[in-house]
């Protein structure tokens, strides 16, 4: 009885699915989905190799500091770094006084517990990077976690920063409706090809590095990507170090467990 019922239920679901499949297949064949500019011209991120990659990765602090400089001088005009506190910068090699000086450059509202007033005064190392007021259209995303919040991570950041170009002529020929709207910028690494952010890194030497590295656009983009990997995952080095200790211990312990297992079962067929 239950089997007759189950066969009926099974046929019911199958019939409904077959019906959906038939209609879907029919429209797929009669009007095959047209190619769009996005699925023809969108590109996967370029290769980017950073010191923090892989299970042995450690940050290249020189590069992270250069990236922080690029962030400060370029990105921070529009983008926040809400999750990061000034004190965190000690981890990328700044000392207490430098951290204090960096913090003091920002005006941050502080609540005075005695008077109940909120006053804008100099940032302190314990403060987080303050909100950035952006006057233009749209909302520039917070960058603290951007390296984890985008498919491709740092490679994506690097590719978008260096990927601005004129819209290819054949794109316009094939998809005349897909002309980049005014105020947007063509970038094949961006999800819908048209990004609101104007090219931030426009010329070599836009920042001047203290460590003598040549500030090409490509270099600056790589450096800021490295910095944003750090802001997104400041504990990366601790994680890698702890990971090796744990794995080596586990492999050793599992080896012992295997020997004990063989030992217990010795002579017992199973």
């Amino acid at each position: 009885m239950i089997r007759i019922f189950s066969i009926l239920v099974g046929l019911f679901f199958s019939a409904a699915l077959l019906f959906s499949f038939g209609k879907g297949a029919y429209s797929y064949i009669s009007e095959p989905p047209a190619a769009t500019a996005v699925n023809v011209y969108h590109k996967e991120p370029k290769e980017l190799a950073l010191a923090s990659d892989g299970p042995l990765g450690k940050f290249d602090m020189q590069q992270v500091q250069r990236g922080f400089q690029v962030y400060t001088e370029v990105c921070s005009n529009c983008h926040m770094l809400h999750q990061v506190a000034f004190r965190d910068l000690k981890a990328i090699g700044y000392n207490d006084d430098e951290v204090k000086a960096i913090a003091a450059k920002h005006k941050i509202p502080h609540y005075d517990p005695k008077t109940g007033e909120v006053k804008n005064d100099n940032g302190m190392p314990t403060d987080h990077f303050p909100p950035v007021v952006y006057g233009g259209q749209g909302t520039p995303p917070d960058l603290s976690l951007i390296a984890k919040a985008r498919e491709g991570g740092p490679a994506y950041i690097y590719s978008v920063l260096t990927g601005y170009q004129d819209q290819p002529a054949d794109l316009l020929a094939k998809f005349p409706d897909s002309k980049t709207p005014d105020g947007l910028h063509y970038n094949p690494y961006f999800a819908n090809l048209n990004i609101a952010m104007p090219p931030p890194l426009t010329s070599d030497g836009q920042v001047s590095y203290k460590d003598g590295t040549k500030p090409t656009v490509d270099q600056m983009a790589q450096d800021v990507a490295a910095f944003l990997v750090w802001t997104a995952e400041p504990k990366l080095e601790n994680r890698h170090q702890a990971g090796w200790a744990v794995l080596i211990f586990l492999i050793f312990a599992t080896g012992l467990a295997y020997m004990a297992y063989q030992n217990v079962w010795a002579g017992k067929k199973h």
Partner: peptide
């Protein structure tokens, strides 16, 4: 066979293999 020691030993080994895979993900591809 009695569960202990036969299957405690076997499960101990299985647990070790599981933990290796699990920790590899937690620490290196979280």
């Amino acid at each position: 066979v009695p569960f202990h020691p036969y299957y405690t030993a076997k499960d101990g080994f299985g647990l070790g293999v599981f933990l290796i895979l699990y920790c590899a993900v937690v620490f290196f591809a979280p």
